[in-house]
Amino acid sequence: MTHRPVHHTSRGALTNTASRFAATHAEDFDDGWDTLDTTAEEDAEQAPPTRLHRDPTRRVIATNDSPDVPFAASINPYKGCAHGCIYCFARPTHEYLDHSAGRDFETELYYKPEAATLLADELRHSAYRCTPITLGANTDPYQPDDRKLAITREILETAEAFNQPVSIITKGAHVTRDLDILARLAKQNLVSVFVSVTSLDTAIKRTLEPRAAAPGQRLKTIAALADAGVPTGALVAPIIPMITDHEIEHLIEAVATAGATRANYVLLRLPHSVKTLFREWLDAHYPDRAAHVMSLINQMRGGADYESAWGTRMTGTGTYADLIAKRFRLACTRHALNHERFELDTSAFAPPPASGDQMGLGF
């Protein structure tokens, strides 16, 4: 079912178009006989609530061999994300669950209550070979509902018990809730954290990432992590032409001042239904420049809204993409970022004795 675009201050997507995998699609129209059901349209005017669903997954470690992704293993404690970032490249994955990549992605959330237990089982498996595991590769491990569910903290507790190295990507300020664990892991070179900072402009953030932490809060988060001795970087993602690209130098200065020692960036990606959602967002919030924004995106994506080739999907191609890359590189050099990589230690990995395991007690 599709509806006209409606903006809610707490949500990023303006529509909730059916999954592209749905067997049938329906669209309301007025046939002239007063048969149009306006109930759905009226419901669309109401702020959509968040609904939580248990995810019955039996495994939590996902692996990938993509040559342009800097990790081989990841865990996503949640499917969907209440932060509501309109640009999120993970939105189309919700369509595999027969949900929309639009509002459903932000409101129909799946959580993995057994994630820590499943992780322990997988780490104990004889075939497991220790490699750093990334939390937040698709959806944020510190999104709003984790404040009460605390699944990410349980995963970190398991990682600490096994000396399993982890890297974290988040724009959730409540990562600082787990500073005690993160500080201990950092002393053993078992953790790094990248905080995503898209814009320093609260007005841009308000519609771009409606339920994510404010820019100032993210800078404070970087400072708190760095002060605790946690290797901390910033992920400037996505860079959006004519919306956030003018902030590149200011962003790098701000995150470096806060305590970040590394910074990376990703150019806006618009796979599948994200391109439609983003165009709706542009038309609603930046109608004066929407055509120009998409023109620049097309120039950096081989004439299309998105080009998924490995090696260039993160940075784009062409003159404008090259200019962004150069500006980012020079800004990082100016503020002494990226001198060292975060190389986590895998040699200390050691599964603790399982409950009831007498062989591991030294008798």
Score class of each variant (00 low, 15 high):
D322W: 00
V274G: 13
K220A: 15
W310S: 07
L270Q: 12
A256G: 07
M242S: 10
P231F: 05
F278E: 03
P238W: 10
M242K: 12
R262G: 12
A321R: 04
A223Q: 15
K326I: 05
N264P: 00
H250F: 03
A237W: 07
R301C: 02
I324A: 04
I240H: 05
I252K: 06
G229Q: 08
D288H: 12
L268S: 10
T312I: 15
R289D: 13
A325C: 04
V230T: 11
P271W: 05
R313E: 07
T312D: 02
A224K: 15
G302H: 11
V266F: 09
E247A: 09
L235G: 12
A237C: 13
D305I: 01
Q299P: 00
R269V: 05
M242T: 08
G259Q: 10
P215F: 11
T232C: 09
T317H: 07
P287K: 07
D322N: 13
T315D: 00
L219S: 03
P238K: 05
I222M: 12
R279K: 12
D227F: 00
S295G: 06
E247W: 09
T261Y: 05
R313H: 06
T257C: 08
A226H: 14
H272W: 08
H250Y: 01
E249A: 13
I248D: 09
W281F: 14
Q299W: 02
Y306V: 01
I240N: 03
A290Q: 06
G302P: 08
R289Y: 02
R279F: 03
G229T: 08
M314Q: 12
D227M: 01
T221H: 08
Y306S: 01
G311C: 04
E249L: 00
P215H: 09
V255I: 15
V255D: 11
A237E: 10
R327Q: 12
Y265G: 11
A325K: 14
G311W: 04
N264V: 14
G318M: 04
W281P: 04
F278K: 08
L251I: 15
V274W: 12
E307P: 00
D288L: 11
P215L: 08
L323N: 04
R327I: 06
W281I: 07
S273A: 14
Y286L: 14
N298R: 15
